[in-house]
Amino acid sequence: MKFLYNHLASLFLVMFLASCMSKPMPPTPPTTSNDITGKTWKLTEINGKPIALKNPKSNPYFSLNMKEMRYEGNGGCNGVGGTFEIKQEMMRIKFNQGMSTMMACDDLETEQLFTKALLAADNYSVNGNTLSLNKARMAPLAKFVLQK
């Protein structure tokens, strides 16, 4: 009887220790799909129309640096940059007038529309790898794809 008691006690101890060791891991916080910072976004559409570039290597893009609260990018020929404000939980954004280089380029129209869209945007939406910059509830000013 003593043997059975010791054996059962050992079995319960092993089961207890095993249950303590197999605690589920705490869930990892979900990644927010509205976090557009620290990524490079390449322009694909402006004012509802796909962009047509004379030089495909000159695709406009931008990225947001949260540490310095600055945006930087390229309009296709000239570098652009400045400060921005963002409220990710509300998906609101404001690009402040910044600086731009002033080189003469073949495709200044796309560059000007790109810069105008950045400065006019007051909110954004994300759908997968596509970012839309919007003004109020109107159609998107510009659409971007996540650059890999």
Rank of each mutant, 00 (worst) to 15 (best):
T115M: 11
T110C: 00
A117N: 01
D107T: 07
G98H: 02
A121D: 01
M102D: 13
K94S: 15
S100L: 10
A104Y: 14
K116Q: 06
M102G: 07
Y124T: 04
D122L: 13
T101M: 05
F114V: 01
L108C: 08
D107V: 05
T115C: 12
N123C: 11
A120R: 09
S125C: 11
L113C: 08
F95R: 10
T115I: 15
Q97A: 13
L108A: 02
A117P: 00
A121P: 00
E111C: 00
S125M: 11
K116Y: 08
A104H: 14
S100W: 04
M103D: 05
S125R: 09
D106R: 13
N96S: 14
A104C: 09
L108D: 01
T110H: 06
K116L: 03
L119S: 09
C105K: 04
S100V: 06
A120C: 07
A121C: 02
A121F: 02
K116G: 06
A121V: 06
T115Y: 14
F95L: 08
N123V: 08
D122H: 13
E111M: 00
N96H: 13
A120H: 06
K116F: 12
Q112W: 14
L118F: 00
E111H: 06
D122R: 11
L118K: 01
L108G: 00
A121W: 00
F114S: 00
T110S: 01
L119R: 04
F95C: 09
S125V: 02
T101V: 06
T101W: 09
A104D: 14
T110P: 00
Q112R: 14
E109A: 08
K116C: 03
K116M: 04
T101S: 05
F114L: 00
L108I: 12
M102H: 15
E111R: 01
N96Q: 15
M103C: 11
Y124N: 03
A121H: 01
L119F: 07
T101E: 08
M102P: 04
